[in-house]
Amino acid sequence: MIDTVSTADLIAWIRKFRDAVQEHRDELTALDSAIGDADHGSNMARGLDAVVAKLDPPPSSAPDLFKVVGMTLVSSVGGASGPLYGTFFLRMGPVLTGEMDAAALGAALRAGAEGVVARGRAEPGDKTMIDAQMPALSAWDDAVTAGKGVAEAAAAAATAAAAGRDDTEPLVARKGRASYLGERSAGHIDPGAASSALLFRALSDALAARG
């Protein structure tokens, strides 16, 4: 079992995230059309295309990688998604300065999510991307506590993120554009939670593909 990740693994993750967003672009936009500005899919797809274009030559370290990813998303993704996802990756980088085992990567992911919380001032239950990210991190931590490696932790996190995404459907939005709809925001999955579920599924797929 491979219990650490390399910078190349993390680059593969970002590429898979881009591919997943492209594949689900119309779905993300449809979700956003119900409770937002109908641009989440197109904005994320454009931003991640810009990110991948900057990965050749590949960054030499995880901090360098996530600085490139974060800054590119902030500058190329419209609306709230760019700053929020950009903050997520920018906060991850400084944490990954040593061996990248399951605990270290989990700590970096948590730093990223906490950055999103600080920037967006959202809490669990507000019907935002945090509602997918926080369950994923809890599942990751549980896997680490149980002695699981990075691939198993990522798989558990991906499953929890998908459940968190689905759990946003009945919620009434309390943050962002969707909050303007009040009770009418209930009955729709949050698009940011949906893209966050793709983020964790992409990480799981990238690590599982290592063999």
Rank of each mutant, 00 (worst) to 15 (best):
D3Y: 04
F66M: 05
W140F: 11
S6C: 06
F66N: 04
D131E: 04
A45V: 02
G164S: 07
D142S: 15
D141R: 14
S185L: 12
L199R: 01
G187T: 03
E27C: 04
A136Y: 03
D39L: 03
L96V: 05
P59H: 08
L105R: 00
E123I: 01
S60C: 02
T72P: 11
A208N: 13
M92R: 03
T7E: 09
G120T: 07
H188R: 01
D3V: 14
S6A: 13
V69C: 11
D19W: 06
I2W: 00
A53V: 11
H188P: 06
A50S: 15
D205N: 13
P124D: 09
G79C: 05
P124M: 09
E169M: 13
S195I: 09
R110Y: 00
A30P: 07
R18Y: 02
G176F: 08
K67M: 13
S196K: 00
P170I: 01
L73T: 05
S81H: 11
P83S: 09
R121Y: 01
G93V: 09
A208K: 14
R177Y: 03
K127R: 11
A111M: 06
A173Y: 05
L96T: 01
V77C: 11
G120A: 10
V51T: 06
K16V: 10
V51M: 10
A197F: 07
T145E: 13
H24L: 02
M100I: 15
H24F: 11
G36M: 09
S179G: 08
A154E: 01
